[in-house]
Structure formats: C-alpha cells, structure tokens
C-alpha cells in the first residue's frame, strides 16, 4: 500500500510542481504573484487540444505550438495588464491577475465550453498500465514525472547559463542597480511573465491526458501549486519542485492512512503550520522581510 501511495503522491506532486515552477519564475524575477497562473495552464491545455484534436495537427508540433502560444499570451497579459502596475504595489498586481483569470476563464468557456464536460486529451504514449516488476504504473505518469524534472533542470540551466537568465536573476536581486547598468527591466519583466506562462503551457500539455481539460481547472491547481511554491521558499525552482512533491505526498499519505475526507484539506493545514513555524519555506533562502 505504501508503495502505491508514494508513487501516486509523487505523480500528483509532479503536477503541482509543474504549475509551481511558473509561479516561482514570475515571482523570482519580478516580485509579483500571478494568480492567473492556473488559467494559463488551462489555456495551454486547450491550445494543445485545439491544434491537435480540433485542427488535426500532429502530436509533437501541436504541443510545441501550444507552449509557444502560451508564451505569447503571457507576454500579452504582461503588456496590457501588469506592466502599468508594476510600480503600484503587490495588491494591485494581485487583483489585476485575478481580473485576467476571469477574462481567460470566460474566453475559454465561450470557445470550448460547449465541447464537453471534462475533455479528454490523447496521451503521449500508450494509455494502458504497464507492469514494472510486479508494480503497475501508468506510462503517462512516468512521462509527466520525468518531464517535470527535465523542465526544472532546463529552467535552472536557463537562469544559470544564458545571458537573459542571468539578467533576470540580476533584476530579481536589485532592480535599481540593474537599471543603472543599462538592463531593460521592463523587457525582462515581460520575458519573466512570458516564461512563466510558457512553463504553465508545458505543464498543461504534459498533464492534460491525466487532468482532463475544462475551463475551471486552474484555480484548484493554482492554490495547491502556490502552497508548494511557498513551501519551497518562492525563490527557488528546485524548491518549487520539492514543495510540489511534498504537497502531493502529504495528500496521498493523509488520504491513505488518516482518511480520504482529509485529503483535500491536508495541504492547507500543512501550509498554515509551515508558515507559522518555518516562514522562510523549507529551502530557506532569503529573509522574507528585512527591516
């Protein structure tokens, strides 16, 4: 029983981690929380559905197109909704991102809401379960798990080794100094929002066969992913992944051993406790408030 609970907890955690990565990318570079991150996931999934199922493009190009489309949606939302507010304060950006989430949900509902309730998306590889040494797993879950690790490494490498990645890191550390040395902060903020959206899109195309697609998928995912990101310290990509896996594991183990009615609430109880007792998150990192 424990083995199955752990694997399913990790699979669930990979889902939260993938969404949490997007939250961290945006927060790390801009200091803003994008509450529409869940809706960007939803939209990414519907893009893949549109390209592959509705327009009949081949599988892999459809997925790539969906990620690219998400990237542009992210840049667009920054340009129209967040850019003017970056100086106005966190509360304004939060509310603007809520407004964006309503917009995106409404648009998706009016375009795809009449197609079905929970829209299935064909899996990347065979759907049937495979037997690994007496232990049965779903191939799509393995793919999703592996891909989220790969995506994490890719993004960490991006921040470490590319010029724009280093700049993103620089503006995160000190926006005034970055401006002084001639870094275009606005463009980098746009890039951060776009990358956050692209990673949500990537998460969606990997996970859609398991999560199914519907306009309201975003909120529930966002809130668990947000918990995961905070658990991981909000500044660290690896922290987001670990935080996500922990939330997934807690949910599975609590449901399995304590009782299934506590599954959904367990993440919130954990997050309350963590915030009260270890407010910096498990990956520690920087002080959250210097006075």
């Amino acid at each position: 029983m424990l083995g199955y609970l752990i694997t399913s907890g990790l699979a669930l955690g990979a889902l939260y981690a993938l969404v949490a990565i997007g939250i961290v990318i945006v927060f790390k570079s801009t200091g803003a929380i994008n509450l529409a991150q869940g809706e960007l996931f939803m939209l990414g999934g519907f893009f893949a559905f549109m390209f592959h199922v509705q327009m009949g493009y081949p599988y892999i190009p459809s997925l790539l197109l969906a990620v690219v489309a998400s990237f542009f949606i992210g840049a667009l939302t920054y340009q129209f909704a967040f850019r003017p507010l970056m100086k106005a304060g966190l509360v304004s950006v939060l509310l603007a991102s809520i407004a964006v989430s309503f917009l995106l949900k409404g648009v998706a509902r009016n375009i795809w809401g009449g197609v079905g309730d929970y829209i299935p998306f064909p899996p990347m590889i065979t759907a049937s379960a495979i037997n690994l040494n007496g232990f049965i797993v779903l191939p799509q879950q393995l793919v999703a798990f592996g891909a989220s690790i790969a995506l994490m490494l890719l993004i960490v490498a991006y921040f470490k080794f590319t010029r724009s990645g280093k700049w993103l890191q620089a503006i995160a550390d000190n926006v005034k100094a970055a401006t002084l040395v001639g870094i275009r902060v606005g463009a980098l903020h746009r890039l951060a929002f776009a990358l956050g959206a692209a990673s949500a899109g990537a998460a969606a195309v990997l996970m859609a066969p398991l999560t199914l697609l519907y306009p309201d998928i975003g909120f529930n995912l966002f809130i668990k992913a947000f918990a995961a990101a905070v658990l991981g310290g909000l500044h660290s990509i690896a922290g987001a992944v670990i935080g996500g896996l922990i939330v997934g594991l807690v949910e599975a183990l609590v449901a399995g051993y304590v009782g299934s009615k506590f599954q959904d609430v367990s993440a919130f109880v954990v997050i309350m406790l963590v915030l009260v007792f270890i407010p910096r998150g498990i990956m520690g990192g920087k002080a959250m408030r210097k006075v």
């Binding site: 909704a81 507010l85 407004a99």
Partner: peptide, 21 residues
C-alpha cells in the same frame, strides 16, 4: 449573459489600470 466573466474581468482591469489608487 454568458460573457459576464469576460466583462467583469475587463471592467475590473480597466479600473485598476486607470485608477490604481
């Protein structure tokens, strides 16, 4: 009607953008 969500999001956004305070 069913475009309310979009309209609500848009109005909210316009308010925040043009009257951030």
């Amino acid at each position: 009607k069913s475009l309310q969500e979009i309209a609500f999001g848009a109005i909210l956004l316009i308010f925040i953008l043009f009257m951030p305070l």
